[in-house]
Design a protein around this nucleic acid. Structure first.
Lengths: 110, 110
DNA sequence: CAGAATCCAGTTAGATACTG
DNA sequence: CAGTATCTAACTGGATTCTG
């Protein structure tokens, strides 16, 4: 089974490419959020998908999960130090994506 | 139906995030390739997926398709001028992805 | 509050066969 | 050579219900 190492672009897509992951990261760049906050901020994402994506992002090390053992429970999510290394990448993607959306708006036929 | 404009990160992922799209772009950065070349270069992609992704990339304007009306037919794919504007983005993604893969190799438990 | 579990629908990808 | 067509398998995402 000789195959090349995983394409690093696919690695990035795997980390941030889930349906709601970029939205989650976006909402965590400014400040820590609780699970319920994220539900309100991303109302189209189901509870299940939100929880699933948060777990995956945590596993990759880009976000941190802090549990306060109170009743009722309180869980906070934040971008980790490591996660912040993604910001220059996502900013570049945003710039290109914005431009691309603009381009399609001008000439949808292209 | 008030909803925000499409997240530009998702735009980028839509353009280059297909299962084999980054491989296709990678293989076209250096030189023009024929359909059969790409099949050999990306053996795990089925003919169908290859054709489908090539059509999508062409629609987004990042690659160009040139048909030589010979027998047998000859079709060449190349990165368009516009497609080359993606290169700085994919390079950054590669850099982060490489680093991330390395990080996981060192500490798979993280 | 912050989820886990279950079930179901829709989308996506692969295998195979066929064609101009 | 460079695809298309068809069928099927796998995966993804959503709705709903339940719990410490």
């Amino acid at each position: 089974m000789i195959h090349q190492r995983k394409c690093p672009i696919e690695t990035v897509i795997h980390v941030i490419g889930g349906k709601w992951k970029s939205m989650i990261l976006w909402n965590l760049t400014e400040s820590t959020k609780r699970f319920g906050d994220l539900e309100k901020l991303i109302p189209d994402a189901s509870q299940k998908m939100l929880a699933q994506h948060l777990r995956e992002l945590e596993q990759e090390g880009v976000i941190e999960r802090t549990v306060y053992p109170t009743i009722p429970p309180k869980v906070e999510y934040s971008l980790s130090e490591y996660g912040r290394t993604l910001l220059p990448v996502t900013e570049m993607m945003c710039a290109w994506g914005d431009n691309h959306n603009e381009r399609k708006r001008e000439d949808p036929a292209s």
